[in-house]
């Protein structure tokens, strides 16, 4: 297995976006790309990352391999790469290590690191194809700010989607808060658009703690998609055009 990115920045951001939610995980490498699927330790959220082979500068995977890696260790290794350095990952069959090579574009500095692989029992979950009742596309910075703001007031947020707006509400010991975002088009700046596709109205409650973990992916993507159906996990997707995506799934809370 050998994969090379032109710039380390994307991989750094991907690892930063998931490492605090899932500690150790397996990267599944096939000839179509690298992916990971992992639950957080409390089994409430699920992360699915796909990095397509087309998104790499060069990519070769002769035999499918599952590489168990501590993401915190991977983040440590990637700290040694400059944002504009190229990154090459290498793993040989049956080897218990993965190699990282960073090269500056002027080629005057090359650094190499070897990370020990771990034995990780992964159980992949089947994510069913879902026709969502409401899909909201919005700037990822808006979602990050909304979740951060509401976290000051409560632990949970109720997201309600109507035809032309989406409402985020919370309440806690010191009071309540809500943020309403209205659909807005923007032909010249599509990344600032708020688009709401509503087939059925939806209202779901989620733990803000997890949404705040998810929005760590905001530096990867200007836009985010919230896909919701009543009584179904929320899907928060950060698309990376040409490269792949990070999708986070979160189980809703129920009234008791």
């Amino acid at each position: 297995f050998e994969a090379k990115w032109d710039h380390a920045s994307t991989l750094k951001k991907v690892i930063d976006a998931v490492k605090d939610l899932i500690g150790d995980t397996s990267w599944d490498c096939t000839n179509t790309g690298m992916s990971l699927q992992s639950m957080d330790s409390s089994h409430v959220a699920l992360v699915h990352v796909l990095l397509k082979s087309e998104g790499f500068e060069s990519y070769r995977c002769d035999r499918n391999v599952s590489m168990g890696i501590s993401l915190n260790s991977m983040a440590k290794v990637l700290k040694c790469a400059g944002n504009d350095d190229s990154v090459t990952l290498r793993h040989e069959s049956e080897s218990s290590v993965v190699n990282f090579a960073f090269e500056s574009h002027k080629e005057e500095r090359v650094s190499e690191f070897e990370l020990k692989l771990m034995n990780i029992d992964t159980e992949h979950l089947g994510i069913p194809e879902t026709e969502y009742d409401s899909i909201i596309k919005m700037p990822s910075a808006d979602l990050r700010r909304t979740c951060a703001d509401l976290s000051q007031f409560g632990d949970s947020v109720t997201i309600s989607c109507a035809k032309s707006d989406v409402r985020f509400e919370t309440s806690g010991d010191i009071g309540t808060g809500n943020v309403r975002l209205s659909a807005r088009g923007s032909s010249d700046k599509p990344e600032t658009e708020i688009a709401i596709e509503m087939i059925n109205p939806v209202s779901l409650t989620f733990a803000l703690k997890y949404l705040n973990f998810f929005t760590k992916a905001a530096p990867l993507s200007d836009t985010v998609k919230l896909c919701m159906s009543n009584n179904h996990p929320l899907c928060v997707e950060f698309p990376m055009p040409e490269v792949g995506y990070i999708r986070y799934y979160l189980a809703p809370k129920i009234d008791e």
Binding site: M39, L46, E123, A207, P233, A251, E256
Partner: peptide
């Protein structure tokens, strides 16, 4: 109060 369900209540083991 509201209860948190696990994600495994919705997605089955593949």
């Amino acid at each position: 109060s509201s209860g948190q369900r696990p994600i495994t209540a919705f997605f089955s083991k593949a």
